[in-house]
């Protein structure tokens, strides 16, 4: 599903990722752990081309990303890749000018281009699945952090991605809310959703199929549970 080969990334003079190679198989739940500043977030942000990199390559489901300055990927390919790779952010990043429902509809409507009615048919069941059907018309600032993150997960799911990247999804939440969000993520895992999760949660690492540990930009261990 995803193959990372000899990935190298610099930010200024700092080497953030220093030659990482790893594979994520279809249906696999991979946890990425390690100390802060180890390159975890940067790694997954490279996976959906939010960040360019300077060496190595990434292959996602037949689309390959090259190092900056080599072959340029066509725009259409890039958009296709991003639709295959969903992402959930630490700070939720819901669109504040849209209701919860509109947030979930935004991917189908503006990325895929389905009609409003069609998008709503996709979005409502997803909101129900994350337990927020009754909050469909609330704006993000009327929702708790945990609720916002669950809407964000529904929003990522709405474009039916092959894999979802989670960037510390519970770090900005208090324990109870974190538990709500974690329950949703574990539920997805049960259904066979391929996921890459950057996390500090030991509870989650116990349930992941594979735990990759990053330190100072290097992959120091990959342990299968």
């Amino acid at each position: 599903m995803i193959t990372v080969t000899e990935l190298r990334k610099k930010r200024g003079a700092n080497t953030v990722i220093d030659g990482i190679s790893l594979t994520i198989r279809k249906g696999e739940v991979a946890a990425i752990v390690g100390p802060s500043g180890g390159g975890k977030s940067t790694l997954i942000r490279c996976l959906n081309a939010l960040e360019p990199f300077q060496g190595g390559r990434i292959d996602v489901d037949g689309v390959s990303l090259q190092a900056e300055g080599t072959a340029k990927i066509p725009k259409a390919t890039l958009l296709a890749l991003r639709r295959k790779v969903g992402m959930v952010f630490q700070q939720f990043n819901l669109f504040p000018h849209m209701t919860a429902l509109e947030n979930v509809m935004s991917g189908p409507r503006f990325s895929i281009g389905v009609s409003r009615a069609e998008a709503e048919k996709i979005a409502r069941p997803l909101l129900e699945r994350v337990g927020l059907a009754q909050k469909a018309d609330s704006k993000p600032d009327q929702l708790s952090g945990g609720q916002q993150q669950r809407v964000a997960i529904a929003r990522a799911l709405a474009v039916s991605p092959s894999v979802i990247l989670f960037d510390e999804p519970t770090s900005a939440l208090d324990p109870q809310m974190a538990a709500e969000v974690m329950a949703v993520i574990l539920d997805l895992a049960k259904e066979g959703q391929t996921m890459v999760v950057v996390t500090h949660s030991t509870e989650f690492t116990k349930r992941a199929h594979v735990v990759h540990t990053l330190e100072r930009g290097r992959l120091v261990s990959s342990v299968s549970n």
Partner: peptide, 24 residues
């Protein structure tokens, strides 16, 4: 994060600007 979230959903940069950035 707003632009990133829009791009991560697969929106083209122009769509992201029109639908996400400009309304805000």
């Amino acid at each position: 994060g707003q632009m990133e979230a829009a791009l991560a959903l697969g929106m083209s940069p122009m769509t992201a600007v029109r639908r996400i950035m400009l309304p805000q």
